[in-house]
């Protein structure tokens, strides 16, 4: 019984971690259609923001929840203004540019921070569930991810800013003719996506080693999740994460971590064969 509870918690934690690493990309790729191959590096920068902020004496929670998103969000706006804005609608060029950006950021991080594994310790310690121990921090991540998803949904659905953003992404020409400064909307939306990626890196940093190349481990999974999710970015990311995260975790429990990864990839391939438009191409079509 305890084991069942613990496995369930682990599945929920895995789903939350997939949502976390994908949600920034869901905004940038799912909503803005920018294939951002530097997504992993935004995560990496978020993690380094936490490392340096805590070294300078900032409280860990402030560093994770405030400093990292702001820093990476600002970097995202700079990137949008200097690179991305010239490339809207040019998919291949965007891929090349963001791939170059990814290499540049890895190189710059290696030069500035050094190619050394850094890290901070996870706060909060463990909780006991029957005979089992689990990390309280993992559960806190689940709560934070839930809050972030709800907040994002609320912003997009109920605020004027969210409406403007959605309208601009759907039909920029019409939005512009109604007097909306679309280029500003693009910059802010890209910055928001980058900030979410920064938050992901920040929350991951206590659990894994922080190195300039750490983003590579996440970028493929994030793309797979967002693409499997389909057009409705939030519902899609949630449903794809739930499916892929559960399969991955269960396979890891039953077999090995390698089989777990294989199961995730295999499930994504089968899914896209059956539903080429992603989950929300078929189900929850009117969702956000």
């Amino acid at each position: 019984m305890d084991l069942a509870v613990v496995v369930l918690l682990q599945v929920i934690a895995a789903v939350a971690s997939l949502v976390l690493i994908s949600i920034g990309l869901a905004v940038i790729f799912g909503m803005m259609h920018v294939i951002n191959l530097a997504h992993g590096e935004f995560i990496m920068l978020g993690a380094y923001a936490v490392i340096y902020a805590t070294r300078w004496g900032v409280n860990l929670w402030v560093a994770m929840l405030v400093v990292a998103p702001i820093v990476v969000g600002l970097i995202g706006i700079v990137v949008e203004r200097t690179v991305i804005r010239f490339l809207y609608g040019r998919m291949i060029d965007t891929m090349l540019a963001t791939w170059g950006l990814s290499l540049l950021l890895i190189g710059a991080a290696t030069m500035i921070f050094g190619n050394v594994t850094a890290g901070v310790s996870a706060p909060l310690g463990g909780v006991t569930i029957g005979e089992y121990q689990t990390s309280l921090y993992e559960l806190v991540i689940v709560a934070i991810v839930a809050a972030v998803v709800l907040a994002l949904m609320a912003v997009l659905r109920f605020t004027q800013a969210g409406l403007i953003a959605r309208a601009t992404m759907q039909n920029p020409a019409m939005a512009a003719s109604l007097g909306i400064d679309t280029s500003k909307v693009y910059a802010v939306t890209f910055g928001a996506g980058a900030a979410l990626s920064g938050l992901a890196g920040a929350l991951i940093s206590p659990l894994s080693g922080v190195v300039p190349t750490m983003g590579v481990a996440y970028v493929a999974k994030a793309f797979i999740t967002v693409i499997s999710g389909g057009a409705a970015i939030i519902t899609g990311t949630l449903s794809a994460s739930t499916l892929l995260g559960s399969l991955n975790t269960l396979a890891t429990f039953i077999a090995t971590p390698v089989i777990g990864e294989v199961t995730l990839l295999f499930a994504a391939i089968v899914l896209l064969r059956i539903l080429p438009q992603g989950i929300t191409g078929k189900f929850f079509r009117r969702a956000l």
Partner: peptide, 17 residues
């Protein structure tokens, strides 16, 4: 066994328990 790029040991830690 873990490939060199594995960073998530959550399920393994539960398996160990």
């Amino acid at each position: 066994f873990f490939p060199l790029d594995v960073t998530d040991f959550g399920p393994t830690i539960k398996k160990i328990q």
